[in-house]
Design a protein around this nucleic acid. Sequence first.
RNA 1: CGGGGCGUGGCUCAGCCUGGUUCAGAGCGCUUGGUUCGGGACCAAGAGGUCGGCGGUUCGAAUCCGCCCGCCCCGACCA
Length: 388
Amino acid sequence: MRWTRYFMPTSKEAPKDAETISHKLMFRAGLVDKTSSGVYTYLPAGYKVLRKVEGIVRDEMNKAGAVELLMPALQPASLWKESGRLEKMGDEMIRFTDRHKRLMVFGPTHEEVITDIVRRYINSWKQLPVTLYQIQTKFRDEMRPRFGIVRAREFLMKDAYSFDLDEKGLDETYLRMKEAYKNIFTRSGLVFSIQQADSGVIGGKFSEEFVAEGECPELEVGHLFKLGKEYSEAMKAVFVNREGKEQPAVMGCYGIGVSRIVAAAVEGNYDEKGIIWPLSIAPFSVLVIPVKADDPALREAADKIYGALTKNNVEVLLDDREGSAGFKFSDADLTGIPLWVVIGKKFTENGKAEIKIRRENRFVEVEIDNAAKWISDYLKEHGQGKRE
RNA sequence: CGGGGCGUGGCUCAGCCUGGUUCAGAGCGCUUGGUUCGGGACCAAGAGGUCGGCGGUUCGAAUCCGCCCGCCCCGACCA
């Protein structure tokens, strides 16, 4: 991708209402744009990061044996009446009456929908256990959205729901999810702790939350619940056991704020100059910087490396903009791309590219013709596929 | 939802208290030309704003008053 053809509007100044470091940097690096209070657009680079986190979540959930599906954001209020949560959720749940005068809601969570599905298709103990999950946009009319995307009214969430035969089964599923969560947050570059939590409006008897380290007082990025039979009893999600008798499934639910991980990753990976993306979720792996945009020799060398990396399926951004070296370096720091290939003085002097490793603040000089290979090797060693 | 604050070019803000030739400004960004080019360059010339909206007071309102809208902070709340 060529910067002049891309859309990553960087900025020296953050909006005045940005308080937390992630909010400031995500705005300044051109990742997100506020459309309304608590409502954000993910600009191209921000969306790439979001998709990468989503990919990690999906990968680990699949490995843990969960099965992906996609439920509707729009739900009939009748399901919520049945579980008894229509009142309980209050104004946080966005509602409207459709043209047929039917009350509808924008799903803040999906216990009702999933339980409705499972009760209609699962009838026998032979079909259990099963864990279903989705990655989907949630709507919550927060009283007070804050910290940029950290507490938004519309956000991307991974929510998983497990149905087991008994408590013992739930315990096993729960532990498997917990392990998956550790992998997800580690791979996303977060430092986190696990805390006992209040299960709030979701209910259930036991819950733990994953809290990411950072300046931002929120973050909670993941929450695990042992729901038990609360919903399956209320909504009659029962199966026939070996003895031929009906009994309610034992449920668990497991949420991850996917968009929150992005903010948390920034909170945990930055310096005074900008973001330092973990390779696993960086919008681009490599930034090629010809120091003088209008020097034909530098330009040609940069194009060559850019072409070679692109051919190797490396996600590379070429800073082909006009501008001084300082200008480009500052944006490079800000946007946090892990590797830079600087084509400048050293190239003119002795044909070398300088590869900077952003996280280590270290330069490596490499013959220009070996640069693409050096990078491919580096990425293979530290790459997206590997756990950090 | 209670309390507080803010709203002036794309962004950050000054001006408002004390209404009127310092009233529509600055920096950043943008455009054009030139010189630059290893850590957000410089010079010159430009473009860009119904001062959030409506109403009121006044000879005169960005400035004073009222209502509305939007946004932020603290709290309560919160997978």
